[in-house]
């Protein structure tokens, strides 16, 4: 059985100008122990999906359509009380820029013990501390740094502590939102290796959100490319990045700087994404698309299968 099923998910934010449809008609599934990489333009709805999976949308945000089913439980239909039992226990999240959110006046060990006891009040102090020691070993933090304060840690160490906290209650699904953006390539490479190892060891499902497509290509089995609130291409990492079919994915890949190969000109995508508070009759990318035809503007594009497990939301691919 799939670990996670997301069906026709729609999420809106109430704004002064009306409902902003941040996520629209998103479908995907994730098998236990697999990883899905979500990539796409800044503002396309990646964090919003992560927050919905955690049941943590802000007060002006709500699920307008569709279902989220995690491990047989319908998260999208749960009350806050029910969600509290699932959150951190079954699904946890490494938030964007979380390492700056550690409490500066509390020792790392105390913060982690607290994180465990908030969700498992029955766990004794000693048992919680033993668990924290275990987590330190797991993510490669030296035990003698248990009682440090956050400012005594380097960025990489803080990020490891955040990962340890996300793993504290043995979740089946971890959502990692830009987990390595603030880190340099050397620390990033170490953390990604460890993450892959932890995932394999504990059969954790991961949703990995990043705008660095080289990392996502390296870490994830499956890729979902989002544009303006919709998934527009999905499939195996190799296929999506190196045999891209959707014009947006192609443009994204060709604007990515690399060290290898000849230095070609980076090609940013001209124009701006559409306004998500209005209704968009046709394809959302058509104003910026090199293939744009008259029908693109008028009709919603349909999903096409372009290879085994490789799907594209475009009628002209």
């Amino acid at each position: 059985m799939a670990l996670l099923t997301v069906e026709n998910l729609g999420i809106g934010y109430q704004t002064a100008k009306g409902l902003l449809k941040a996520v629209d008609g998103v479908n995907f599934t994730l098998e236990p122990g697999h990883s899905l990489g979500l990539v796409g333009e800044s503002g396309c709805g990646k964090t919003t999906i992560g927050m919905a999976l955690m049941g943590l949308l802000p007060p002006n945000g709500r699920i307008t359509e569709g279902r989220i089913v995690l491990d047989g439980l319908e998260i999208s239909a749960m009350s806050e009380d029910e969600l509290r039992k699932v959150r951190w226990n079954k699904v946890s999240m490494i938030f964007q820029a979380a390492m700056n959110a550690l409490n500066p006046v509390k020792r790392i060990s105390a913060q982690m013990v607290e994180a465990i006891q908030v969700h498992r009040p029955e766990v004794s102090d000693e048992a919680a501390l033993t668990r924290v020691e275990g987590l330190f070993n797991l993510v490669g933090l030296p035990l003698e740094r248990l009682y440090d304060f956050p400012h005594q840690y380097s960025g990489g160490m803080k990020q490891r502590a955040i990962i340890a906290m996300a793993l504290a209650l043995n979740p089946k699904l971890v959502i990692a939102d830009e987990p390595t953006t603030a880190l340099d390539v050397i620390v990033q490479d170490q953390i990604l290796k460890e993450t892959k190892e932890l995932q394999r060891q504990f059969n954790i499902g991961i949703i990995f959100i990043s705008h660095d497509i080289s990392i996502v290509a390296d870490v994830c089995h499956q890729i979902g490319v989002m544009y303006a609130g919709q998934l527009v291409e999905s499939g195996p990492a190799e296929e999506v990045f190196f045999n891209s079919k959707h014009p947006y994915t192609q443009a994204l890949v060709s604007s990515f700087p690399t060290l290898a190969g000849p230095k070609t000109k980076l090609a940013p995508i001209p124009g701006e994404p559409p306004n998500l508070t209005g209704t968009i009759p046709g394809c959302r990318f058509c104003d910026r698309c090199p293939k744009d035809t008259a029908s693109c503007k008028l009709d919603h594009p349909q999903w096409q299968e372009v290879g085994p497990g490789h799907h594209v939301l475009c009628d002209h691919c």
Binding site: V39, G40, E41, S42, T181, A182, H211, I213, A251, L252, S255, F256, P257, L266, A267, P268, I269
Partner: peptide, 13 residues
């Protein structure tokens, strides 16, 4: 560092 590749390329330009 907070932006996707397409936006970054635009900032470079």
């Amino acid at each position: 560092s907070m932006l996707d590749a397409s936006y970054s390329a635009q900032i470079f330009e």
